[in-house]
Design a protein around this nucleic acid. Structure first.
Lengths: 195, 195
DNA sequence: GTCTATAGGACGATAGAC
DNA sequence: GTCTATCGTCCTATAGAC
């Protein structure tokens, strides 16, 4: 209660990261001050620098963790036998993973231009790795003639853009369950790539 | 050359808007200062306020002009007879119009959160109007059984997200012509909504 | 119409007390 | 580990000279 000072950093680091993610998603990296983050956490601005060397590193860490977490989660997914099932699994995985982390997704897509060139290159590499996972599925289906695509790379980007778009309109209180959303998008994805 | 002062505002207004659009797209609204815009235009910061009451109005004007321009351009397009041709025409129109205005598109999609609530409501209304144009096409095709969609509203949002995604990767110097891009996307759009 | 100058405040980051 | 206090810089917006 009245405790104004003392050592209670148990979870200050994570709290800072969570507050920064929320505020960056809501107002944008450049529009959020270190003082606002500190206020949200309940510490003074100077205390933030015990946990991050600067504001840029805070942003980069959030984006890097999101992308590596996404890749790691996909890597542990079971791999169905045929390309159609693989694509369905990717579609559902992508939608659910992204719906679960709207702030991290938003920040990772919107704040790329606020990264230093070095940090930008790293995040772009991780994003490319994720795109390659989907493109590999499309290529396999193309080879076995279950998919028909004029350009697998562009199809990859088009599908990811379409699927990630869910985050711009989905609301938990809306008329559609997550399963229903999955079904609607899978119907379009399946047909879009079909032979 | 040496002219440092005097009256030469002939095109200062448009120059300010163009510079602001470029800088907002590149660095983000919150990260760009009025001084940077003035430097880019070649005037002092104070002079900007002859053309805009404040920074917020500058942003809002850019976004409003983009959205009203988009709606006006679509309104003048010829309307093909059947839903399939209408959808193909919308697909090509959307891709080309957006590829021609990457900065305005980027700002209009990324800076929504930097609008005041009143301005946000206006831009959202314009965006909704544009979405309604596409949904009307999908509904007509659904009625005549040439399209089969579980949910026309979500299909609308999914298609627009997919098409607008072109702007994230297209480069004029790339391997694909705009016509080829149109063809690739139309192939996927056509199949995605097909009965 | 544009300039110079500035008011008034917020910013990122650091230093030193506790 | 957190605080208070502060440095030096930058910000938006305005006032008044030309």
């Amino acid at each position: 209660m009245g405790r104004k000072t003392g050592s209670h950093s148990e979870i200050t680091g994570p709290k800072i990261r969570l507050a920064a993610l929320k505020l960056f998603a809501r107002h944008g990296f450049a529009a959020v001050s270190m003082r606002q983050i500190a206020l949200d956490v309940g510490v003074q601005a100077g205390a933030l620098y015990l946990y991050t060397p600067d504001k840029q590193s805070l942003l980069f860490g959030l984006m890097q963790d999101h992308m590596t977490g996404l890749l790691a989660a996909w890597a542990t997914q079971p791999q169905p036998a045929n390309p159609v099932d693989q694509l369905r699994h990717f579609t559902e995985f992508h939608i659910l993973y992204h719906l679960d982390r709207p702030d991290a997704v938003f920040v990772s897509y919107m704040e790329l231009r606020n990264l230093t060139p070095e940090n930008f290159a790293i995040i772009e590499g991780l994003r490319r790795s994720y795109e390659d996972e989907l493109e590999a599925i499309l290529k396999r289906g193309q080879t076995t003639d279950v998919f028909s695509l004029p350009d697998t790379k562009i199809a990859t980007l088009a599908l990811i853009a379409m699927l990630t778009g869910v985050n711009t309109w989905y609301r938990q209180s809306g008329r559609l369950s997550r399963n229903k959303v999955n079904a609607i998008y899978w119907d379009m994805v399946r047909k879009a790539v079909a032979a």
